[in-house]
Every structure is written in C-alpha cells, then in structure tokens.
Design a protein around this nucleic acid. Structure first.
Length: 385
RNA sequence: GCAUCAGACCCUCUUAUUG
C-alpha cells in the first residue's frame, strides 16, 4: 500500500490524473486495500486538473465502499471549488462536514480564509479567522501570509504590514513567501522602494531571496518606469543569482515594451532564441503584443505564424492579441476568420475576445454581427463591458 | 500511537499613446 502510494504520488506529480484513476481501478479490481490517503491524492490531482466531476465521482465512490473521507478530502475539494468561485457548492460541502463531525484544522481554515480574502469577502474571512481561534487552532505562517496577500491585493498595505508585524510579535516567523507577498503588495501599489527595503530586511533575518522575489521587484521597477533599476536586478540575477526563469524574462520583456524600449526587448528576445533559452507562450504573447502596440502588426503576425508553424500552441490571450491587431487595421474579415479558427481548434474564447470583436463591429455599424456575437457571448455566460 | 495525502508569493490580452 505504501508502494502504491508512491506510484500514485508519482502519477500525481506528472499531472496525469486519468492514469491515476485507471491505476486505482486496477488496484480495486485486484481487491488490494487502498488507504484514504491515496484516494485523497487522486481526488486532489483531479481537482487540480479541473476534473471536478471525476473528483466528486470518486468522492462518492469511496463513501459507497465504506471509506470515511477525512478533512484532507474535503480540503482538496473545497479549495478547488473556492478557486472556481462555486461558493454554494463550498457551503454544501462544509455543511456535509459538520454533519459528519469532521472538524477543520489550520490548513482547512487557511484555505477558506485565503479564498474569501482573495474574493474580497473580508467579512467571511474574519468569521473564519475567529472561528479558528475559538477552536484553539493556532494560525501559522501560511495563514498569516494569506492574510497579507489579501490585504496587498486590495491595496490595504497598512493592514498588510500590521499583519506582518503581528505575526512576528507572536513568534511566527515570516519565510521567503511571506516576504515575497508583502513586497508584491508594495510593488503593485507603485512602492517598489518599500519592496527594496524589505529585500534588505530579508537578509538581516537570514531569509534568502529567491527568483520570485527578484521577479516581483523587477516588475515593480518596470511598473514605475525605472528600467535602469530593473535591468540592474536582471543582470544581477544573470551573474550571481538567483537564476532567472521564464517568468523573469517575460516580466522584463513586458517592462521593456511598455516603457518604449522595443529595440532592447527584441534584441533580448533574439538572444534568448539563439542561446536556447526557453520562453513560454506568455513570453511569446508579450513580444507579439509589444510589436502590435508599436504599430508593427505585420511583424507581429509574421511572428505569430512562425510560432504556430513551429508547433507553439497559442492560447486565448495570444489569439486575442492577433484578433485585436486585425481589428486595429480594420481587417474584420480576418479577425472573424481567426475567431472561427480558434474555436475549431478547441481554444475557448473568453469575455475579452467577444469584447474586442463587438467593439470593432460597433465601429462598423455591423448590427447583425453584433447581435450574433452578443447572443453567443450570453450563451457562454459572459457579459459585455 | 506517529508519519506519509490538502493550504500562502511572481508574467501576457479589449476599451486605453490622450481616461
């Protein structure tokens, strides 16, 4: 059973949850006992894969086999439901837990607090916090970091800093994620200087800054137009680390484009290709978008075609950039054609895709097209801006 | 009995070079 667990865990890390499911079936058919932890791992991987229906099927199946779900089982399901914003389903599961007298632990409450706070549901988050304390549970570094993140996301940096200070005073030590979170809050509010102060405080506290720390700061500098400082950090990463990853390159490229340094961005992009540095679809999208904004749609389109020919799979945002580019030069037929194409290859348009197209057709007074798009949009549960 | 399973941080798209 331990060995099987290792195998399932391996499958889970590979992200192939269908495989894990089949594996479970095989074990069940051979009447090998499977512990609830193994089921938990598979349920969690299904959730992370977005296969909620399969996850619930398995959840019900283990119940029918007489295996009792644990708080971990519920935590995995609830976590994903929160991310999807399916609050009524969350409530239903929580009631289910209460009915079965399965009580939440710190991780469980942290999941809910994090989700509420991210969704701007401060009241509910506070309720969960109080409930947690009332039960004698002690918030840990992750709990505090979630709070700090929530406050940062809503530009309430005073509250974020207060939370940071109070965790320290309670003997709960901030780790690199805690620092990154607070730094990110300041950077997103155009206060990268405060972020740099925290970078110094990190070393004072013997917390080692990682790639993510630098990524956040580089973006912070780009956002306030201080490309020189961003470049300095980027070069520091190249020569003494922490090593840049594809997100670092994306952030820096985006910063260069948005600050009018198209040439430098393109030089870097070329250099990356020559040196075999992989950049993901996000990075490619940044470059294609940067070319569009610079009025070089022909080049953008050329790059887009080159990438797709190389087998790079565009995603919605990439299609949106190109569709928007066609609209910008009044090639609505081409925009419509690409829109059709993306759907044919199974790339689901999002809210923004429709808004781009509707806006373009509005300019052309193409009423029937607008009606068609609006209807299709509504059918998919989107709304116009 | 304990442990192994669940939780926190970073990038791109419309309106928008002019809000």
């Amino acid at each position: 059973s331990v060995t099987y667990g290792t195998v399932v865990n391996g499958i889970r890390k590979s992200g192939d949850s269908d495989w894990a499911l089949n594996f479970l079936r095989t074990m069940e058919d051979r009447r090998i006992e499977i512990s609830v932890m193994i089921y938990n791992m598979v349920i969690d991987s299904l959730c992370k894969n977005g296969q909620m229906d399969d996850a619930f099927d398995l959840f019900r199946r283990i119940e029918s086999k007489g295996i009792l779900p644990t708080v971990v089982t519920y935590a995995s399901l609830i976590h994903r439901l929160c991310v999807l914003g399916r609050w009524s389903d969350v409530l239903e599961l929580v009631r289910d837990m209460v009915r079965r007298k399965i009580s939440g632990n710190v991780v469980f409450f942290t999941i809910l607090i994090d989700a509420f706070v991210k969704d701007g549901k401060a009241l509910e988050a506070k309720e969960m916090w109080e409930e947690m304390i009332q039960r004698g549970l002690v918030p840990d570094t992750v709990t505090y970091t979630s709070l700090i993140n929530g406050f940062g996301m809503h530009n309430n940096l005073d509250a974020a800093k207060q939370t940071f200070d109070s965790m320290v005073s309670k003997g709960c030590l901030p780790n690199v994620v805690t620092f990154n979170t607070l730094i990110n809050g300041y950077c997103k509010s155009n206060r990268v200087d405060e972020g740099m102060k925290l970078l110094n405080e990190m070393s004072r506290r013997r917390v080692v800054a990682n790639t993510c720390t630098y990524n956040i700061l580089i973006q912070g500098f780009c956002q306030v137009g201080n490309i020189d400082a961003a470049r300095k950090l980027f070069r520091e990463m190249l020569c003494k680390g922490p090593h840049p990853n594809s997100i670092t390159y994306s952030i820096f490229l985006d910063g260069l484009f948005k600050n009018g340094k198209q040439d430098e961005a393109l030089v870097l992009y070329d250099k990356m290709e020559k040196n075999g540095i992989k950049i993901g679809i996000v990075g490619h999208t940044i470059v294609v978008h940067g070319l569009c904004k610079d009025g070089k749609f022909a080049e953008a389109l050329h790059l887009f075609e080159k990438l797709t020919n190389k087998g790079v799979k565009p995603h919605v945002k990439m299609y949106n950039v190109i569709i928007s580019g066609f609209c910008g030069i009044d090639f609505l037929d081409e925009a419509d054609k690409l829109f059709k194409h993306m759907k044919e290859v199974g790339c689901k348009p999002n809210n923004r895709t429709y808004n781009i197209l509707i806006r373009a057709h509005l300019k052309n007074d193409d009423i029937s097209k607008i009606i068609e798009l609006t209807r299709e949009m509504r059918d998919r549960g989107f709304s116009a801006d």
